[in-house]
Design a binder for these strands. Structure first.
Lengths: 110, 110
DNA sequence: GTCCATTTCTCCGACAAAGTCGAGGAAATA
DNA sequence: TATTTCCTCGACTTTGTCGGAGAAATGGAC
């Protein structure tokens, strides 16, 4: 009964990071990916909160990984986008693409 | 004292509509532009609230237009992005572009 | 001409949703 | 058991959303 009103900006970013990272998508890696690619500085806490909400909305799923053989190698929790998540993401990305169609990086209209 | 953390999704959309509409950017036209281009259904109230917040943050400015010679032609309030607004918008749009670089409309990685 | 219904547009107040942070806890290794 | 890596939780701020009220203008009935 909740015909979803689209993704927030950060949810979009997190979902995109999931797509980009593929099998390697877990909390810390996601944070790093966003910082590296989007140039945006966020805390891991923010990422986890968002991940949890996305999971509650049925847009992503998670699974626990095995412990890695390194100091402090705690089990990671990997995330992947579900079909509904991909659909939502594609919709909002494409909306953005339409809105920015024909705009230069400086936002001029050619 | 407020090292700004970027724009929300809707703020982004409204700002983009301003850029696209140029001199014709006022409340109702902005709503229509977003509906037409982004395919997203919003109320005018939502747009005004966002516009007001953007103005308070110094990202857009407004001026009153003249009454138009048509039934109910109340004076419009035109908005335009300020330098800081364009900067913010360009930053978040470019971040999105980097994150979606190489992704198909269906979000596959080629 | 005067009223008032109608149209166009803007403002406001309240609430829901998303975003953010920081401290703290669990599990693994050395 | 000290250290490292990662995840959870709770509190709070910022954004997003709506619906209805209000202001300004016109057109027509009388």
């Amino acid at each position: 009964m909740d015909v979803n009103h689209g993704l927030g900006e950060f949810e979009q970013l997190v979902l995109l990071a999931l797509v980009r990272l593929g099998a390697e998508a877990y909390g810390v890696a996601i944070r790093d990916e966003i910082e590296r690619e989007a140039g945006r500085d966020v805390t891991v806490g923010a990422v986890y909160t968002t991940l949890l909400r996305l999971e509650n909305k049925g847009l992503v799923a998670s699974r626990l990984g095995d412990p890695t053989p390194q100091r402090g190698g705690r089990r990671k929790k990997y995330y992947r986008p579900l079909a509904a998540g991909k659909r939502e993401l594609a919709a909002s990305v494409n909306a953005l693409r339409r809105m920015t169609r024909g705009l230069t990086p400086g936002l001029e209209l050619p």
